[in-house]
Every structure is written in C-alpha cells, then in structure tokens.
Nucleic acid binder design. Structure first.
Lengths: 249, 249
DNA sequence: CGCTATTTTGAGCCGCGTCAATACGGGTGG
DNA sequence: CCACCCGTATTGACGCGGCTCAAAATAGCG
C-alpha cells in the first residue's frame, strides 16, 4: 500500500462527514462542502460499542459531543431512590451531550442499546471552529433549540394512549428520514425502557399496544412493529405528534 | 443640555447592560466590561408593558430575543382543543424566545403577568457579534443548554407534592439570586397558572398548599407566600429540587 | 432442554381530576 | 360607608386512568 492510499484510507477512517449518508440530518446540515471538510478534521470515529457499553456517565467532565453513526443509544438519569429515568433514544445522525454545555459535566448517562458506533466531536475545537464559521454556529444553536422544542412537547400532560401513539409516530418519522420504512421497524429498546421514557408502567404499554392491535392500528410482535393505520394513529396522538426525542421534521 | 450629556443620556436609555444590576444573571454573564459595552449597542429597551400585553405569539416571525428587565412574564401554548399550557414563568434577567431559533418562528406565546419591561436583542445582530466574541457565543450556548436541563427536570413524573414543593423552592432560589428574600415573596401568577404549569388541577394546588400550611411547611395567604421550613420542603420535593424554569444555581 | 429475562394478562386500589358548591376579596356605584 | 358583583380561591364528594402486586405465557440462550 502506498503512502498516498494510506492517507486516503486514514482520512476515510478519520470520519469523512463529507461522505457520510447522515450528513443532511447531522451537524453538517446546511454546511457547504468545503465547510464540511473542515469539520471532518475534528471528528474522531469510535470503536464499535456493544449493548450496555456506556459512552459517558453523569458527572463525567464534558469534553466531547457524540453523534450516533449506527445503532441506537439511550440516555437516562438515576434518581436518589435508584430509579432509572429514560430521557431519550438516539438514532443515527442525532447528537448526545448537548445539555452538558452549561455545567461542563454530563447530566445524563448514555448507553448503547445494541451494537453501534459514534463520532466524537471535541467541544472546544467545535466552538473554536464555530467562531470562524457562522453557519456551524447557527447549526449548533439550531440543534440546541430543537432539543428545547422536543422537551417542551414531552412536558405536556398527555394520556397514555396519546403518548404511545405519538412515540410510534415519532419513531416512524425518524426511521423514514434515515431511508428506512416508515411503517415497519424493529424496536431497539425493551418495553421497560419505552414505558419509562413515556412515564408509564410497562404493563400499561403492553395493554395499550394490545388494544391498538385489536383496533387495527398496528401489528406488533415483541420488537417487530408495523403501523397499519397511521391516520387514526395520528388522531389518537392528538397534540403528541412526535413524542420521541429528538424530533426531525 | 450639551450634545455630550445628551449622548450619555441616550446611551443609558439605550440599555447599558454594563450598568444593569441583572448583568451577572443575564446574557452579559462572564463577559468583560468592554465586551458588555459591545452588547449594549444591540440592546433596545421596551416601553413599559402591562398585564395581558403580549410580547410575541406563536408563529410570529422570530427576529428578537427578549430579556426580562422587570416584572414577571408567562410563556404558554394553546393546543388544538383550545386548552392553555403554561411552559414557564420568566423573572428579571431571564431570556425568552430561545426555542424559536430552530424554526425561525416563535413556538410559544409570551405575556406580561403584571407591569414590566424587557430588553430586545435582535437575533441576527447577536449571532454576528457572537462570531466575533467567543465568550458571547459560549454564553448563548450555555443558556440554551441550561434550558434543556431545566426541561429535563420537568419531564420526570413527580407526584403533586413533589412538584409543588419543587416549584416553591425554585421560585425562592430565583428571588434570592435577585436580591429578594428567599423565604417571603409574592406570587405573580394566579393558582390556575401555577396548576397548569405543574400539570395539576387548580383544586389540587389549593389542597396541597393547605396541607403544607397545616404541616407548618409554609404560611400562605392568597398571593403572599412564606416558606417556614425549607429543609422539610426540600425533603418533600425529593428530586424536584428546582421545578421552576429556568433554573439558576 | 431447563433457566432466566421479557412480555402479557388479571385483580384491586389510590392519586388526582372532575364537578359542584361555598367563601373570600377587591372594585364599583349608590 | 355599605351593598352588590364578579373573578379567584377553597372545600367536599365522587369517579376513573393508570399504578401496584401477582402470576402466567413466551422467547432467547447456554
């Protein structure tokens, strides 16, 4: 192998947002090709992670923002009584760690739900680049602002039916934007995590999924989900259109 | 009056973050004196607003970030069935409108609860200045990130007791940071708004306040609130330390 | 094939919302 | 100064959505 091809190989391995199929969903969204190349130099790809591998834990010093490259991740906190509280599921192209900017320490734990990889973005380098690149600054602020909008959606007091319907529609939309089917997908997370995320009991999730199925809204078999009647599902969700963080629309 | 003194007068009127007692809580936090002066040139003070005056409404084009200078403001959305949903109360030094960055349109309504004033910050100018002033960029991102943390606090499924105790402690902390008493303050908002913000029924708020009073935690008379036992109040709040957006600690 | 984690199903109960009535307070006009 | 009125707040009775506890069914895995 020649040094030249070695370099090319290394550059590809080093990340190449410019060639990443997720670029239009991720941090490079809206950046020009040359701007994306400058971003490439910051990004460091991770070794493959496996289920239960943690990316960071609460109170870890905040140095890095993580972008999901493949797989599905979960972020959560643990309260004083040891109860887990799921705060989000993160699909490829989505960022994790943004809420740590304020405290300089992570405010959540982040863990892989299955095998996956991430891109690491050193925050100091990222902000330095952002001062030189107004579009990147804009993009970071837009992503922060979007997280706020999504959380605002979460705080509304929806019924269990609305929450679950909204969650399924949100997942559907996110998978669709990534080139997967909007109506058939595999749930990366157990019922327990879905229930916890939606602030419901696992039993409630099971019961409602069963009823949705009886009503012909969905066909569900363990982790395999099919949306049969998205229109009625949307009516059921009501205001909770996209109960699934972060939202892409 | 000489032109010089006219200019000085105008500059003071034009805002003077440099002289504002709220500077250490607001956007200028962490900026040097000369940096704050550059911010001064952007800021435009508002005419006094009265109760029920709106700053902006949902779907208004987003051009401006608002900083509360005096008074108390409420932000809320209205859902499809016409029900109001309170998303936050905003005290002096706090910013409103940050969640509109993503969509370029406002996602909430903002209204004065009593007589008050705000500072208007044109967003385009602000981001332009931020590219030249890394500390300002940092500060905006920190404030965005803090809003995320606060909302994360809100989404946890606390009991009604925890929510209300957390809300009172949050208000207490915010008043304290502004130089007011941490134990005696006047509620700027009616019970209905408190209940709505905490996702409770107004009747529930009344009942719990009555019980808190019977238990010696507080003394409350209409809008006048006194915290008698903050320690037990904190125990009651549990994880909901600061159920009041945005948080300052 | 047995072991364990996950999911489903059933029974009972409790926190909080809903509905309704009452009390309070601040403003207005006589 | 008092009578009246209306919005806000309180208090009580009752019902329901979703949680808890318990047990059975199913799937993944060594």
């Amino acid at each position: 192998m020649t040094p030249a091809s070695e370099n090319t190989g290394l550059a590809q391995l080093r990340s190449a947002c410019s060639r990443c199929s997720l670029a239009r969903l991720c941090l490079p969204m809206g950046l020009s090709e040359s701007q994306t190349c400058r971003l490439d130099n910051l990004v460091e790809p991770s070794a493959p992670l496996h289920a239960d591998d943690h990316l960071f834990r609460i109170d870890d010093p905040f140095t890095t923002i993580y972008a999901v490259r493949s797989g599905c991740f979960k972020s959560y906190v643990v309260d004083g009584e040891g109860r887990e509280q799921v705060l989000g599921f993160h699909l490829p192209g989505e960022l994790m760690g943004l809420d740590a900017i304020y405290t300089h320490r992570h405010r959540r734990n982040a863990v892989a739900l299955d095998t996956g990889t991430v891109c690491k973005l050193p925050y100091a380098d990222l902000t330095r680049l952002a001062t030189e690149m107004p579009q990147l600054q804009q993009q970071i602020m837009r992503l922060l602002s979007k997280d706020i909008s999504t959380l605002e959606n979460m705080v509304a007091d929806h019924t269990a039916d609305e929450r679950l319907a909204g969650f399924l529609l949100g997942l559907s939309s996110r998978y669709h934007h990534r080139g997967f089917s909007a109506t058939r997908f595999r749930l990366a997370m157990p019922r327990r995590d879905i229930a916890n995320y939606l602030r419901l009991a696992p039993e409630t999730v099971s019961r409602i999924l069963a009823r949705f199925q009886a009503d012909g809204l969905i066909a569900v078999e363990r982790r395999d989900m099919e949306l049969l009647d998205t229109e009625r599902l949307r009516q059921t969700a009501g205001e909770a259109h996209h109960l699934s963080a972060p939202v892409f629309d």
